[in-house]
């Protein structure tokens, strides 16, 4: 399970890269990101690039699934797994 600090870093990265007008702390860990913030394919691409740059991980082709991008918690778990 990913820690609170990682989830907060992800929220800040998402708000920054998507230019969202929202306090990162207000994003729920298990909130549906696509539904709440109208995230589309362009936004997802930005999130992928942001995760790779900030957390120094690499996505593989098999990693791409809608479930991965569903919530901050799912993204944080993914980063934690990638970091080993």
């Amino acid at each position: 399970m990913a820690d609170d600090q990682l989830r907060q870093q992800l929220k800040e990265m998402i708000v920054e890269r998507l230019f969202l007008d929202v306090d990162p702390a207000q994003i729920g860990d298990d909130e549906d990101l696509m539904e709440s913030y109208e995230i589309d394919s362009v936004n997802l691409f930005e999130i992928v690039v942001g995760m790779e740059e900030q957390f120094e991980i690499s996505f593989e082709d098999d990693d791409f699934s809608v479930d991965l991008f569903a919530t901050v918690s799912s993204l944080a778990d993914f980063v934690a797994r990638k970091r080993g």
Binding site: D40, S41, L44, F45, V48, V49, F59, D61, F64, S65, V66
Partner: peptide, 25 residues
Amino acid sequence: QNLRRSMIKAMMTRHEGGGDAEGAA
């Protein structure tokens, strides 16, 4: 990055249509 953009777009298109998102990627 361009390949990823295509993969993500295909994944989302299939998802919104109720299809197999991972297969699209």
